[in-house]
């Protein structure tokens, strides 16, 4: 059996206990919540922390509450299954519920957490492999090596952000609360990312994501998530896109956003989406042609690479298709866009 490397497990019961452990052990420690990302990565020899701090027994980090102002507070160790099935999430942030419902397979959603999906390590076909495999390859830029096998001569790791919920949270304008020994700091999720596949987050590895806050959306909020993958379950996205579409009282688009994932190291917001869609009313020809323009924009801006498994050319070809279908689904109040 593929074995986990040896480590010591710590199981704090409070956020303060967890941050103290992270401060104490510094770079020797890593946090784990659901373990659906970290344990396979550790079995692959990608991380060898001496201490693993499990957040499973931190009761305060779990659960979904609705604030008086209508915003959602999602504890970071709330499972993806809970988030997908949560009535408040389905009602006020449908795209988030949809995205959570399409992460991996049923058991992994029961184990995997809301925070874990945000903090998911980037993925690459040259990286998510066993130590034997990577050693035979001669390693890669992201781990133990100096060469990028995706971009010839590439100096910057281009492993792909592959978290289904991240683009959704960006489209919803969510903020993240990070705890450390220094206290709590809040980060708008859109500002979390950097274009570095080795570590694509502007956060210390020792910081603990404790809570996700989704602000109350506009009255006419619509949202949908579209996910391309080979199988109807288990697989990571080959491409994902999250749509926010706020309809005004007149039924026309008042605000919109489109964020894509499984392309490069960070989730990618497509530019100029709102200006193309605002004022267009779903069901009209003007709306349909605006949607097509957005799809073309996405095609121009989103350029899948040979980082994750799957034909990059094909993935690119599917960008406008999934973008268009997801925009239309959002307009109809439907979704997710997924082949099964």
């Amino acid at each position: 059996m593929l074995r986990l490397p040896k480590f010591r497990l710590e199981e704090p019961t409070t956020v303060e206990g967890a941050t103290a452990l992270m401060a104490e052990h510094g770079e020797d420690a890593m946090v784990v919540a659901g373990g659906t990302d970290l344990w396979p990565n550790m079995k692959h020899g990608l991380f060898e922390p001496k201490v693993v701090v499990s957040l499973k027994r931190v009761e305060a980090m779990r659960g979904i509450t609705v604030d008086e102002d209508g915003s959602l507070r999602i504890g970071a160790t709330t499972t993806l299954a809970e988030m997908a099935q949560s009535a408040p999430v389905q009602a006020s942030a449908p795209a988030l519920a949809q995205a959570a419902s399409l992460v991996a397979g049923p058991q992994l959603r029961t184990m995997g957490t809301a925070g874990g999906n945000v903090m998911l390590d980037t993925r690459c076909q040259w990286y998510n492999q066993t130590h034997f495999w990577r050693k035979s390859l001669g390693y890669c830029l992201k781990k133990d090596g100096t060469v990028c096998h995706v971009v010839a001569g590439g100096r910057k790791c281009v492993a792909a952000a592959s978290n289904d919920t991240a683009p959704t949270l960006m489209s919803l304008g969510a903020t993240l609360a990070f705890a450390s020994a220094d206290g709590i700091r809040e980060v708008p999720v859109g500002e979390l990312w950097k274009a570095d596949g080795i570590w694509n987050k502007k956060a210390e590895r020792s910081e603990i994501l404790t809570e996700i806050r989704v602000p109350k959306q506009a009255a006419g909020h619509r949202g949908a998530y579209g996910k391309l993958r080979d199988r109807g379950s288990i697989d990571y996205p080959l491409f994902g896109c999250a749509v926010r579409m706020d309809l005004g009282e007149d039924g026309a688009v008042a605000g919109a956003d489109l964020v894509c994932v499984a392309l490069v190291a960070r989730p990618l917001r497509i530019k100029r989406v709102e200006e193309l869609l605002v004022g267009k009313t779903p069901g009209t020809e003007a709306f349909d042609s605006a949607v097509q323009e957005v799809a073309d924009l996405a095609y121009a801006q989103a350029k899948p690479m040979d980082n994750i498994p799957g034909d990059a050319e094909y993935r690119r070809e599917l960008v406008p298709v999934y973008v268009r279908r997801t925009l239309q689904a959002a307009a109809r109040g439907e979704g997710p866009v997924h082949h099964v």
Partner: peptide, 19 residues
């Protein structure tokens, strides 16, 4: 490189009940 492109049940995709 002569390496199996994805020697795992994640990358070698066999159908699930829904596929």
């Amino acid at each position: 490189f002569g390496l199996h492109s994805g020697p795992s049940l994640l990358d070698y995709r066999i159908p699930t009940a829904i596929d």
